[in-house]
Design a binder for these strands. Sequence first.
DNA 1: CCCTGGCACTCTGCTTCGGCGAGTGCCAGT
DNA 2: ACTGGCACTCGCCGAAGCAGAGTGCCAGGG
Lengths: 340, 340
Amino acid sequence: MSLDDRKLEVLRAIVEDYVATQEPVGSKALVERHQLGVSPATVRNDMAVLEEEGYIRQPHTSAGRVPTDAGYRLFVDRLSRVKPLSPAERRAIERFLVGAVDLDDVVHRTVRLLAQLTRQVAVVQYPSLARSSVRHLELVPVSTTRIMLVMIADTGRVEQRLVELPAPVAPDDVMEMRSKVNEKLCNQKLADTPPLVQALVDDSPPDRRTTMACLASVLLETLVERSEERLALAGTANLTRGGMLDFQGSLRPVLEALEEEVILLKLIGEVEPSTTRVRIGDENEIDNLRSASVVSTGYGPGVTIVGGLGVLGPTRMDYPGTIATVRAVARYVGDLLAQN
Amino acid sequence: MSLDDRKLEVLRAIVEDYVATQEPVGSKALVERHQLGVSPATVRNDMAVLEEEGYIRQPHTSAGRVPTDAGYRLFVDRLSRVKPLSPAERRAIERFLVGAVDLDDVVHRTVRLLAQLTRQVAVVQYPSLARSSVRHLELVPVSTTRIMLVMIADTGRVEQRLVELPAPVAPDDVMEMRSKVNEKLCNQKLADTPPLVQALVDDSPPDRRTTMACLASVLLETLVERSEERLALAGTANLTRGGMLDFQGSLRPVLEALEEEVILLKLIGEVEPSTTRVRIGDENEIDNLRSASVVSTGYGPGVTIVGGLGVLGPTRMDYPGTIATVRAVARYVGDLLAQN
DNA sequence: CCCTGGCACTCTGCTTCGGCGAGTGCCAGT
DNA sequence: ACTGGCACTCGCCGAAGCAGAGTGCCAGGG
């Protein structure tokens, strides 16, 4: 059985009211607050159907209806009108983001901005190394058997690692390795580097082979394995709004999940181009986040995506507003990166 | 009036029991659990005095006593015996910290370790730049009017900043500036650099003066102004232990405070050599942390201190244990850094 | 002088119990 | 197909009562 227009309208009203008031909404209150030209009794029948279909439910017999995860899903898919940002919000975004001085700064400002605007927990992934290219590699001798490897990516990210060498190496040799490495790897996509690094080892003279192999293994680690690690988080205090009513009484599991970078990266890192992804309650694979929703999207200069960002909040959240904000911030950040 | 030995013993017993059980402790329970050879009635009299002196109080008339902030203070100052770490803890520390691959890694492992051992929120400051020296400065041309400045400190910290130049500069000139800058600043304490940077500008030839001035200003920012910024945080989920009973019902203010890096740096950054500082409840200047305690200490290779670390928890915490753990972790990290 | 046992008192927390009100489901009527 | 009416169901709230823990004080004993 398909839901007719009015039933959908009723669902929308329920979602909107519940999000606004945080209280189960009854038939009478509904007809008062929204102009749908029917009586409470009619609405009740509609609600009965909606409940049967699994879009709403009653917390207890006889006390208003509350949207289910499926209800929210239907709402965001078919019912929510895009809510344009207020001029104030636009201004806030611009004001917040100008004057950022380096990548760290951009990311930190962004994550705070996002948390503030949405009043939720915000997460911003640093530009993923996998999707960027090498701008420069620097080798700095630290002692005779140790060198510091510094990689600068075109997105502005800088990674460093200490390399332990099996045998002492002269500074001149380091310099030579430095130019060799740069020559081979500069301007290459990080994802493409592994074979090049291997070639680097194969092509080096036998007496320097072991040293180079050592460097190569650290290089690979830095360029590939560790490549998705960094992200920034803000707004955890927002979890406490709604006085523990959201998140079924305990934010413990949520806080735990937020501490696991791996989890967060799963949440905001997997993005298809120019889509905003919304995960509602149960749709999250992570058990700890069963009572939370995540809105995430990718960002990057132009159409390419270099990283993800998003927010996490209670399933009972203002989806249209949040989605609009997340998108807008992502676009601004992308523009900012493009100017670089 | 001074408190005799038994009264102090009673206070200790109250603190220990309250910390363990989280419930107000009465006279009867006290004499049962601790072998102080007197009757409940006597203990009651002592408690009356302790209350008058402000070391304990009753949450409500007629329901056990609870230590006040002053009570905890007296406890940590005069009553707590040092609690040696269990072998298991020692092993945990070592296991956790070996295999750290660079400074970031060390800091992250440390903060997680600390959170896990103390079961509180842990904070670790990155080695303060102000207390370290320059190991190497790198200038990487990004475009003709932009160069990336990378500074490597002897503690392993790496900072980068983008420098916008007023006019295009040839790569060769950049190289020359690079060696000039290194020659002057390498191995200098960061705190000593400002005059040297100024000299660098003054000594440069007129045609390169403005470029150098530009670089210098960013240098100063990087070396001095932004120098204390970085820190790592872990274990926020531990705030939810004790089911919202600690922190007078709302962890909102605490979470808010934890988001302000400035606040955290105040808390753990101000350390005198080889002291462990304990701030209890009201002793915190920050209003939001009036119901929290902070245990912090400095760490560094040998006796010098390069940064601070510590934990934050409810005033009702196991002070002896926490202090011991914080100290031990600080020492291990110091040793780790010294090997570098 | 300090400690002890006893006693009366004061609370809080928990449980029980109605009454109230919101909200529903169903039904008959238009 | 919608509406108004009606009976019913429950959760919430305040009052009342009960039990238990803990206290303060006092008089007696080492």
